[in-house]
């Protein structure tokens, strides 16, 4: 390669590397702001602020959904399989909301540890399958096989 071109290429590569490091450090420093939500472990360890509107996200624990008979209030536990947090919400839930599905709830963490949400969003995982396949998987699961884990 021509020496001038080699020099230009080196300069460009150095500048790009510098830029990448700068952006990398910035995003690393801001990672908590970039995270859309706190997971239950962070909430349990007190990382989430008490007096601010925050988002909590994780999976709805199997068998934890309790619906009120009077209004649309629903209570459920959000878990990341290490800790879990109780979420209380009054309103219409998205279609995809179900036990074992991912959710992101927006609201405030009360001092008693209950997360009172004013918005609940459903989180879909990266697995796409037709109903028959998931039925077959559930049958396999019932006969002892491990369920496919949902990662966030």
């Amino acid at each position: 390669m021509h020496p001038i071109r080699k020099k230009r290429l080196t300069i460009i590569l150095f500048l790009l590397a510098g830029l990448a490091i700068a952006v990398g450090l910035t995003t690393y420093a801001l990672r908590q702001n970039i995270n859309l939500f706190y997971d239950p472990t962070q909430i349990a360890s007190g990382e989430a602020p008490l007096d601010a509107r925050i988002r909590a996200g994780g999976m709805v624990k199997q068998g934890s959904v309790v619906r009120s008979d009077q209004d649309l209030t629903v209570e459920f536990e959000v878990t990341d399989f290490v800790s879990s947090v109780t979420v209380r919400y009054t309103g219409i839930l998205p279609d995809l909301f179900d036990e074992g599905q991912g959710v992101v709830a927006m609201g405030r963490l009360h001092p008693d540890g209950v997360f009172v949400a004013d918005q609940v969003l459903a989180k879909h995982d990266e697995n796409y399958m037709p109903p028959e396949v998931s039925d077959a998987l559930e049958k396999a699961e019932a006969s002892g096989a491990r369920a496919p884990a949902m990662n966030q």
């Binding site: 995003t27 990672r31 859309l36 996200g57 990662n151």
Partner: peptide
Amino acid sequence: WWNTLHQPAT
């Protein structure tokens, strides 16, 4: 890298 509402790559 971060918690997002968008799911990971399929």
